[in-house]
């Protein structure tokens, strides 16, 4: 299927001067949420645009909610607040969306990518149901799902889902291309980069199941 291209609209909390795209990454401490934000930012930067990755977390502990906002713009990014109106939400953990409101402020036409073994239709139903802390009342959004933990176990041997999810971001959005993801993975992880590149490619291939 065709990769979904999110609308590039004016954001930055209602201030309209600069077009800004925001991507929210969410997961649990230890899954590489902050690293994923950094890697995405580096990839964006190397593609000639401006990037800012801003983690929002409390006293750090493995397993608790961790979030990171990636901001992308053609202009230098002035916004220095953790509130965001993301057009893309990437959930690295199969369950945390139930317990934490990771969809706050999400824009119409959003892309939601979740690491889960469930189908996109089932996830969309759950997000619309209002039974969980993450709730979407938007008219239009697209859900992609992939078993990133399974991909990571196979490719890396550890349940660290972030690099598989980066591949999925490359497939489902125009934030970044797979080539750029591969380049930053090799640069960041050295010899371990190849296994992560395999995970990213598998993640890229896995998001064929959007609900549109």
């Amino acid at each position: 299927m065709q990769p979904h291209v999110p609308r590039r609209t004016d954001r930055a909390g209602g201030v309209s001067a600069v077009a800004l795209e925001e991507v929210r990454l969410a997961g649990r401490g230890g899954q590489g949420v902050v690293t994923a934000g950094e890697l995405l930012g580096e990839a964006v930067l190397s593609s000639g645009r401006h990037a800012q990755s801003l983690p929002t977390f409390g006293p750090e502990r493995r397993g608790a909610l961790a979030q990171c906002t990636l901001r992308v713009s053609d202009q230098p990014i002035l916004l220095k607040c953790s509130s965001a109106r993301p057009s893309v939400v990437v959930c690295l953990d199969p369950t945390i969306w139930r317990y934490a409101p990771i969809t706050l402020g999400v824009q119409e036409d959003a892309v939601v990518i979740v690491n889960t073994t469930q189908s996109p239709a089932k996830l969309e139903e759950a997000l619309r149901s209002g039974r969980f802390l993450s709730e979407l009342t938007l008219e239009r959004f697209t859900v992609y799902t992939l078993d990133a933990t399974g991909i990571a176990m196979e490719a890396i041997g550890r349940p660290i889902s972030n690099t598989a999810m980066l591949g999925a971001v490359a497939a489902a959005t125009d934030v970044i291309g797979l080539d750029d993801v591969e380049t930053v993975l090799r640069a960041r992880f050295g010899p371990a980069g190849e296994a992560n590149v395999v995970a990213a490619r598998s993640g890229f291939d896995a998001v064929g199941g959007g609900t549109i």
């Binding site: 990037a51 801003l54 983690p55 220095k80």
Partner: peptide, 12 residues
């Protein structure tokens, strides 16, 4: 510099 907002934010 503001903690987290700048200390933990990656920027060019």
């Amino acid at each position: 510099y503001d903690g987290f907002i700048l200390s933990h934010a990656n920027e060019p």
